[in-house]
Computed example of a mutant assay.
Amino acid sequence: MRVLVDLNRCQGYAQCCFLAPESFKLVGEEALMYDSGPDDALKEKIERAAASCPVQAIMVEYMNGHADEMVKSGTSEAEARHGA
């Protein structure tokens, strides 16, 4: 799993920091620091954090056995595979 944040879109609402503090940290008032390669054990927290972003700045990328899939915030891996 890989996490990408569009820092130009991020407005510093910090919902991700509350839901996945192991991966997202707000530095100062607006600078978001994040782990782009979090442990798979944090998958559920990362997905919730991405879904909670008011401006949809967080994207989660999953690697499957066939090809990489880019899944935008809030979309589960199963939904992405089945085109939902």
Results as ranks from 00 to 15, higher is better:
Met1Ser: 04
Met1His: 10
Arg2Cys: 00
Val3Tyr: 01
Val3Gly: 01
Val3Ser: 01
Leu4Ile: 04
Leu4Arg: 13
Val5Pro: 11
Leu7His: 03
Leu7Ser: 06
Leu7Asn: 06
Asn8Asp: 15
Asn8Gly: 14
Asn8Cys: 01
Asn8Met: 03
Cys10Glu: 08
Gln11Pro: 00
Gln11Ile: 14
Tyr13Ser: 14
Cys16Lys: 12
Cys16Met: 10
Cys17Ala: 15
Cys17Asp: 05
Cys17Ser: 13
Phe18His: 14
Leu19Cys: 10
Leu19Val: 10
Leu19Met: 10
Ala20Phe: 04
Glu22Gly: 05
Glu22Trp: 01
Ser23Asp: 02
Phe24Cys: 09
Phe24Leu: 05
Leu26Val: 07
Leu26Arg: 12
Val27Lys: 15
Gly28Cys: 07
Gly28Tyr: 11
Glu29Gln: 13
Glu29Asn: 13
Glu29Ile: 05
Glu30Lys: 15
Ala31Ser: 12
Leu32Lys: 06
Leu32Gly: 06
Met33Phe: 10
Tyr34Pro: 11
Tyr34Gly: 10
Tyr34Glu: 06
Asp35Tyr: 04
Ser36Cys: 06
Gly37Phe: 10
Pro38Gln: 02
Pro38Asp: 02
Pro38Met: 00
Pro38Trp: 02
Asp39Val: 08
Asp40Met: 11
Ala41Asp: 07
Leu42Ile: 05
Lys43Asp: 07
Glu44Asn: 11
Lys45Gly: 02
Lys45Tyr: 03
Lys45Glu: 14
Lys45Arg: 12
Ile46Gly: 01
Ile46Val: 15
Glu47His: 05
Glu47Gly: 00
Arg48His: 12
Arg48Val: 03
Ala49Pro: 14
Ala49Ser: 11
Ala49Lys: 07
Ala49Leu: 08
Ala49Asn: 12
Ala50Lys: 06
Ala50Trp: 02
Ser52Cys: 06
Cys53Phe: 04
Pro54Gln: 07
Pro54Val: 09
Gln56Cys: 09
Gln56Arg: 15
Gln56Ala: 14
Ala57Pro: 10
Ala57Phe: 04
Ala57Lys: 11
Ile58Asn: 01
Ile58Tyr: 03
Ile58Ser: 04
Ile58Cys: 07
Met59Arg: 13
Met59Lys: 13
Met59Phe: 09
Val60Glu: 01
Tyr62Ala: 04
Tyr62Thr: 01
Met63Ile: 12
Met63Lys: 15
Met63Thr: 13
Asn64Ser: 14
Asn64Met: 09
Asn64Gln: 07
Asn64Thr: 15
Gly65Ala: 12
His66Leu: 12
Asp68Tyr: 02
Asp68Ala: 14
Glu69Ala: 05
Glu69Trp: 10
Glu69Phe: 13
Met70Val: 15
Met70Leu: 09
Met70Gly: 11
Met70Ile: 13
Val71Leu: 02
Lys72Asp: 02
Ser73His: 03
Ser73Gln: 08
Gly74Thr: 00
Gly74Trp: 00
Gly74Asp: 00
Thr75Leu: 11
Thr75Asn: 05
Thr75Pro: 00
Ser76Ile: 02
Ser76Gln: 05
Ser76Met: 01
Ser76Pro: 06
Ser76Asn: 02
Ser76Leu: 07
Glu77Pro: 03
Ala78Val: 08
Ala78Thr: 12
Glu79Lys: 13
Ala80Phe: 00
Ala80Leu: 09
Arg81Asp: 02
Arg81Tyr: 01
Arg81His: 10
His82Cys: 12
His82Glu: 13
His82Thr: 14
Gly83Pro: 07
Gly83Gln: 09
Gly83Met: 05
Gly83Ile: 08
Gly83His: 10
Ala84Ile: 15
